[in-house]
């Protein structure tokens, strides 16, 4: 599903160059749930952004469904993101002036669906994320947990095969974090490939996660761990 080979990412600031991702090699199979585990600054969010096509690698290979996305032109990479990737951000990134359902429909606007189809998909996604009852509420007036569920619905609405979650529980309390994990389990059962970048210990013992990939200083530090083993 996702294949990464010798991937590097440098950031330049003036004359200084920062080596943020160092020789990353990773394979994620279809339907797998993988947790990228590491402290802040370990490079897991950058890696996730590259997998989502939001950022580009400085060198190395990245294949998603057999297609190299590192050098795709804008129109293709946008279409790739719209169809194959659903992203759940740490800060939810909702447009606060729009309602929950209007936020959820955003990924479908450039598609060729008509409004009836869009409405059907939005309804279904809101149901899966268990937030239908707040569909008309402006995003700015939702609680953190509700916002996160709207973000899940938005990530699902285009029916992507891969769901990328960047620190999804960083702004949630324990109860809401557990609810989020329950939804994630449902998504896994639906056959979605899930990659979670987090430093939240709640993800250490996910029954449905196949692997935990520890990261440190831009590298995958040791052999990947099975779920439940200590770092």
């Amino acid at each position: 599903m996702i294949s990464i080979e010798n991937l590097n990412r440098y950031f330049k600031s003036g004359d200084t160059s920062f080596h943020v991702l160092k020789d990353i090699n990773l394979e994620v199979l279809e339907g797998e749930c993988v947790v990228l585990r590491g402290v802040s600054g370990s490079g897991k969010t950058t890696l996730l952004s590259i997998m989502a096509g939001l950022d580009r690698p400085s060198s190395g290979k990245l294949l998603v469904d057999g297609e190299s996305i590192a050098k795709l032109p804008d129109l293709h990479i946008s279409a790739f993101r719209a169809k194959k990737i659903g992203i759940i951000f740490q800060h939810f990134n909702l447009l606060e002036h729009l309602s929950a359902s209007e936020n959820v429909m955003i990924p479908l606007i450039p598609s060729e669906l008509n409004m009836t189809e869009v409405a059907q998909r939005v309804k279904r996604s809101l149901e899966i994320a268990n937030i239908s009852h707040k569909a008309t509420r402006p995003a700015g007036r939702l609680s953190g947990g509700e916002k996160q569920r709207v973000a899940i619905a938005r990530a699902l609405v285009a029916d992507p095969s891969v769901i990328l979650c960047d620190e999804p529980t960083a702004n949630l309390d324990r109860d809401n974090s557990l609810k989020f994990i329950d939804i994630l389990k449902d998504l896994h059962n639906m056959g979605k490939t899930i990659i979670v970048a987090t430093h939240d210990p709640l993800f250490d013992n996910l029954s449905f996660a196949s692997r935990i990939v520890p990261m440190q200083d831009g590298s995958i530090v040791s052999k990947e761990q099975g779920v439940g083993s200590s770092e």
Binding site: S78, A79, R81, A82, L95
Partner: peptide
Amino acid sequence: LLRALGWSIRD
């Protein structure tokens, strides 16, 4: 955000 959610530059 629009770009991250799959909108192209043209959109």
